[in-house]
Design a protein around this nucleic acid. Structure first.
Lengths: 203, 203, 203, 203
DNA sequence: TATGAATGAGGATTCATTCAT
DNA sequence: CATGAATGAATCCTCATTCAT
């Protein structure tokens, strides 16, 4: 396994925490949070359950740590977004970068999508909701009509859904991502322009 | 509860099955499937767990029965849709009716949306996926460009998401539903027209 | 089913008790007493569990009734045996008739063989043990040597075992029964003669 | 227990698995497999049920482990028997050693004898049947008459039965075992000689 | 004769978690 | 850094039994 001479056991040194996170995320995404037991994670790693507890105080802490680690880009994105003017360009930028961020932490986001009920009870729930709200507030003009607000939200959701629902549509993965992004950008643009026109009209 | 004078116990006769379904759906939607125990359902109904088992062979059968009952309108909708010509009107009709159907079984759909990981393992999972595919095949022109395919899928997803995500946007519920519907119709229409134009262009 | 015109339902009239016994015995013999639930019996008969309770007060009563009904010939055999002189002929007769009795209630005896632990706890347990002792006392001369006592017991046990253990030896069922009987008779005869000789020797 | 001064709790360390097996076997033999609950075993040991599950994955695994451990001598016996010539001496040896083996694992064999219905469903069932067949094939000459085949089988069964049925015959346990053994040897010898004679006669 | 509805007790099993070593 | 052994609470589910109708 690999060309180097490190035995599997040696390799393991010092990165157990990482390996736990990896395996946990994989299983959480695959089977859901509740259906994944610590026993299962431990077995996959050929460690004891107790070892997990050396690295994480609780099961919840594992998912929280994953969330914190993998979600940082999005936090920064929002931070950045907030400081920008609410122009169309900013919004499009946000959408583009958000798309990238999602792609970079796909399994986590699949997990969050498919385990919303669970996530809501977890400590991450609120944090995540806050972020979603943060994004929304950047994309949405407060004075926009309801339809346009929906458009913006829909854009975000299209990105989310795009990752998973499109799996059973034929076509190259990269192409699909681009198509999804295009639709999302479109929605955001429509919302923006429409609101702009209404504003001009009122003057 | 109700204006009549019947005691609670008498009322109970003969509709226990129903009451189980009601309470179960409520709890499933609220806390998720795994986190809702049969004990909890039973307690809420002031019956024993064993009573639940008189009416349903397994926990899964409860959710399956709910799914079967509440989902029938959608099945019929698809049936109907399949027999129609693939015109824009048909598609718009489908979207409108689907929106109605979703509204009529909101808690179930919230449940399914928020417990996708669980649903996937349950017997309903496949059935539901089939239905989604059924809808998709009606809304999507096979020769449409990828972007337009995404638009159609996005329409469906906007309807789904609309029900839940919009909860924390201010505004009258009915108005929000209309806005969501409008966006969905818009997406479908855009997809249809665009595809049509491309076709004409080719000739 | 059968040449007569009686529908299945009519047939059923009035002999439900019998049918319960039949099905119960079949299932008890096949799966054991504890592993056979009343639900199973009821389902096989297409009746409700409650119906069983109309005919039998408890689950145990079902097996007791079977035991009482099917075991009567053996009781009578013992009764008869007790009144006979302890000659070799009597003993051989007992063995022969016991063999017949066993064959006539095979499933019950298979059940008792294979569920001794259960039977011991049931009310039948003691009754059965008494009968076995009754038989033994007829076959065994109190003054016989231990080996000869064992021979007699072994004869009985050979008959029991013969019914079931020989199932996976090739050969015609009837022939096997005869062979088993022969060995049992042999054992009893050896025991008898040997004891007789010792007695004569002592005089 | 033992002359040392160790407290009960200390003693417990490291041999829990053993103690579970001991108690389980005791209870299984006494009350049967199904009627013995894990709760009961756990209580007797003053541990929690969960502790049992630390040592054995299922209830069945407990009995399987007992079977595997206690039954090894018999497996070896059969192994040995197969490599020997089919002489009378071999057969007698087998019977003698089998008698010893049975005595060494009496409770297990009582359990198996009294819970045949259960054992049949367990994973041990087939293994045990195979062993019995193995023994049989060593003791029985294929060309023997049916009666003689029965004699051999009866010998084995006499040994089995001897252990338990004789419990309520008066007399010293050791003496009884010898008597049983003698009868079993006798049966095997009779079968062997009789078959031999028939063979000589045919020439 | 039977059923529909329900109960109470108990079953095996699984889980997250703890802690002395 | 990690394990071995154990716990307590909970889970789904099954069973024999009851009783009003």
């Amino acid at each position: 396994m690999g060309g180097t001479m490190d035995g599997t056991k040696q390799q393991r040194r010092g990165n157990t925490r990482q390996r736990i996170q990896d395996v946990a995320l994989e299983l959480f995404a695959e089977q859901g949070y509740e259906k994944t037991s610590l026993r299962e994670i431990a077995e996959r790693l050929e460690v004891t359950k107790a070892a997990l507890y050396y690295h994480f105080k609780t099961k919840e802490e594992i998912i929280v740590s994953l969330f914190d680690d993998l979600t940082k880009p999005i936090e920064e994105l929002i931070e950045w977004g907030r400081s920008q003017p609410h122009t169309l360009e900013t919004k499009q930028d946000i959408v583009r970068r958000y798309s990238d961020a999602l792609a970079g932490a796909e399994p986590l986001f699949r997990f969050m999508q498919e385990n919303q009920a669970t996530v809501r009870e977890l400590r991450i729930g609120d944090t995540f909701k806050d972020r979603m709200r943060g994004l929304r507030d950047i994309l949405i003009d407060p004075e926009a009509e309801l339809v346009d607000q929906v458009r913006s939200v829909s854009a975000m959701f299209t990105l989310h859904a795009g990752m998973f629902v499109l799996q059973d549509i034929e076509g190259d993965a990269e192409k699909k991502r681009e198509a999804v992004l295009e639709v999302a950008l479109d929605l955001v643009t429509q919302a923006h322009e429409h609101t702009r026109q209404r504003a001009r009209f009122r003057e």
